[in-house]
């Protein structure tokens, strides 16, 4: 909850957080080491200096630290886990469903634990998806199309097997498909960040919501084009919003373009914790105003009402959260007492 200067309490859903283990002990190979180092460079590149973590803490942090940074310090009321596994790089995986579940049980009503699948696991994976839905009651999945699996260096949402998995999601009521597009997807002679497969999947599965994390960056233009055509495509702001400190004019351009091409109902806040802490992002986001010249080019509105939709309203709609009821539920939660 963020208390605005007029006393208004602003409810916040952070739709992109993680609890990971990138430690040396868990790394399988050099790729595991490089993966977490790359995250650490993202962290240092865009965080304000006073929020830089020491690297040894960054590679593996405790659930208590997460709770502190996200809820106690970070103004967030609810957070959504978007796990990434990377089994080819880490012995026990980078993320871990059970660790997420455990934390969610400890602090009821605070977390939504999304799952994942890999269409390259074939029939066996389809069965597993059903089992997991049963066990964890997933409402969404995070897909990392750049993940390695055997000789494969990635997959596309337009692959036949991906479609079978999406069909299964539709059947099971897993409605929110969060996609992170990373590089190294074959065939390697094409643009590795191409988001065209999202277009295909979104038009095949109109009942599912496709939240493109990092707004398709580095292919913002392709993403906006697709999102204009497909109304079930959403912009996940993780990464883009972290520019707000170091590159505020770029952030202004990006948010202004997103509001213009997509409208204010399809943009969703995510800090990408622990790459960045929600505290500084939310503070800066709430006080941010579009520079006049940028606002004039698109003519969009970026006021408190719009910010509230981005910070909670839009994600609440996708995850069937009634914000007023949720506030009541959280009033007596142990964390609320600590924060007060």
């Amino acid at each position: 909850m963020f208390k605005a200067s007029n006393g208004e309490e602003i409810f916040i859903i952070d739709a992109h957080i993680a609890l990971w283990d990138g430690s040396k002990e868990n790394q399988l190979n050099i790729h595991g080491e490089q993966f977490i180092s790359c995250f650490y460079d993202y962290h240092k590149n865009l965080s304000p200096k006073e929020y830089w973590w020491p690297k040894d803490e960054f590679v593996k942090y405790s659930p208590e630290k997460l709770v502190n940074d996200v809820f106690m310090e970070g103004y967030v009321d609810m957070a959504i886990f978007q796990p990434v596994f990377l089994k080819e790089f880490y012995k026990n995986g980078f993320g871990n469903f059970d660790a997420n579940e455990e934390l969610s049980k400890k602090y009821p009503n605070r977390f939504i634990c999304n799952g994942t699948f890999d269409p390259r696991h074939g029939e066996r994976g389809l069965e597993k998806l059903e089992e997991n839905k049963e066990k964890y009651n997933w409402q969404g999945v995070k897909l990392y199309t750049a993940d390695w699996y055997g000789n494969s260096k990635g997959y596309k949402l337009s692959d036949d097997w991906s479609k079978r998995y999406l069909e299964k999601c539709q059947e099971l009521g897993i409605r929110n498909i969060h996609i992170h597009k990373g590089p190294t997807i074959t065939p390697l002679n094409r643009d590795a960040f191409d988001v065209a497969d999202v277009d295909d999947a979104a038009s095949c599965f109109p009942e599912l919501n496709f939240i493109v994390e990092h707004v398709g960056l580095p292919r913002l233009e392709d993403f906006c084009w697709i999102a204009t055509q497909e109304k079930n495509v959403y912009a996940g702001l993780a990464v883009a919003i972290a520019l707000i400190h170091d590159r505020p004019r770029y952030f202004a351009h990006i948010i202004s373009e997103l509001l213009y091409w997509l409208d204010e109902d399809r943009i969703i806040f995510g800090s990408d914790y622990a790459i960045w802490e929600p505290k500084w992002i939310i503070e800066k986001f709430l006080e941010f105003e579009l520079p006049e010249d940028i606002q004039e080019e698109t003519g969009v509105t970026f006021d408190l009402e719009v910010k509230k939709k981005i910070l909670a309203g839009n994600a609440a709609r996708l995850y069937n959260i009634d914000i007023e009821k949720q506030k009541e539920k959280l009033k007596n939660c142990q964390l609320s007492k600590w924060i007060a």
Binding site: N45, L217, P218, R219, L220, E221, Y250, E257, W261
Partner: peptide, 12 residues
């Protein structure tokens, strides 16, 4: 939009 995307990438 194309120009912004390329410039964003360059800064990043």
């Amino acid at each position: 939009l194309t120009r912004l995307s390329m410039e964003f990438n360059a800064h990043y």
